[in-house]
Design a binder for these strands. Structure first.
Lengths: 221, 221
DNA sequence: TAGTGGTCTAGACCACGGT
DNA sequence: CCGTGGTCTAGACCACTAA
């Protein structure tokens, strides 16, 4: 019953978790020596873990210069959000075709948690429940590749939102749009679901860019 | 003016190319010793290259058992085609908004090459021009992440099509649907472009699955 | 030109599969 | 229980940077 057996798997999983959790922030250097000490392994497993994460796109490696956590620049945020947009729109439509009542209940329950977290200003929980909501819609299709792609880009939302939080404005629109989406799912209205998902993704994307730009100017100050 | 400098980059690029070209087929083992000999490097660069490709999803590594080129099973084909579907649909709509006349000309020229290749039964060229057509539509949006995602899954089309070729039937519908798409782009008809792209992706996906199943039963025989 | 840190090799170690 | 082949360590080597 041992989980991952090899060292490079352990290091890879630990690193990925640290990046997702935010312990390692975008731009942070990943020095081999440091990780050798942290995980009590040699250089080889560390390098292999880093290479794999580079393949996944979380980490950037410059030859002879080293690795660092991928920077979230404006370009990447826009691109990631657009892919999210394409996925969310399509899988909202798909959900109408295949979503079960059981998953609908799950969505409703996630949504309840999200609203409660928002009302209590529990930003971390709100972020995770929000991502979970969208992930669950995609996962309902049982498409591994779509889920992986979603996961790859959800780090953008997670990281920026964690830095800025939810505005009073957004704390209202997010639940409203989610409830509209659930309603459209319930009455099996594919067109409506697509349009709501589309609108939701656009407004989320635009706000994230705006927050990012604000963040940059604040950091510069 | 040296291209990639480090060994692991060279090996990674060579391996990736071999997989895309089909020199290394799905399921082929990637033995470290073999690659050490082939590329004249030690085990370390080989392992790092493999790990990165595993991150990209082209290669599967089982701990203590080794790496092999990813198998194209029915599940993966379906999932990949569905992601392609989501991308193609969305970026067809997007192209109407942002596509330039210059890119339209490029598309027309690619399409000409594709039709010529089909009429001459030049399958390899047809495959590449076909992929190029769809890639170009996505690339017009200038979205790096979308392009990478497209690239990741285009290997499915490439590999299966290479094994089976184009049926007389498909040799007619592909150009027809592409021409319809170009026409919709030209009159900036987003709704039509989306629906054509959608239809095109669905029929391509269904045919690939069918071909795959046929291929499996032939191989088994 | 010294220091930091990434890259690569050689070889020991060990898991797994066949005999 | 031997062979094949994947995994890991130790250390040499080398690219970059700063003084």
């Amino acid at each position: 019953m041992t989980e991952t057996v090899t060292d490079y798997e352990r290091v890879r999983d630990a690193l990925r978790l640290d990046i997702v959790k935010g312990t390692l922030a975008p731009g942070d250097r990943l020095k081999i020596q440091t990780m050798m000490a942290r995980y009590q392994v040699g250089s080889n497993p560390v390098r292999e873990a880093i290479q794999q994460l580079q393949g996944e796109g979380m980490v950037v490696v410059s030859p002879n210069k080293g690795a660092s956590v991928r920077q979230l620049d404006e370009r990447f945020i826009r691109d990631a959000m657009e892919v999210r947009f394409a996925l969310d729109t399509y899988f909202a439509l798909r959900f109408v075709e295949i979503g079960s009542y059981q998953v609908l209940d799950e969505l409703q329950s996630i949504q309840d948690n999200l609203e409660q977290a928002l009302s209590q200003n529990d930003v971390d929980t709100a972020i995770e429940e929000n991502i979970l909501f969208h992930r669950r819609v995609i996962e309902a299709a049982g498409n591994n590749e779509a889920s992986r792609t979603f996961e790859r880009y959800s780090i953008v939302t997670r990281t920026i939102r964690r830095l800025i939080g939810y505005s009073a404005q957004r704390s209202k629109t997010v639940p409203k749009e989610h409830r509209q989406l659930i309603a459209a799912f319930k009455r099996r209205d594919g067109t409506a679901a697509m349009m709501i998902a589309r609108n939701h993704a656009v407004s989320a994307g635009e706000e994230l860019i705006e927050l990012y730009l604000k963040m940059r100017s604040n950091t510069a100050a």
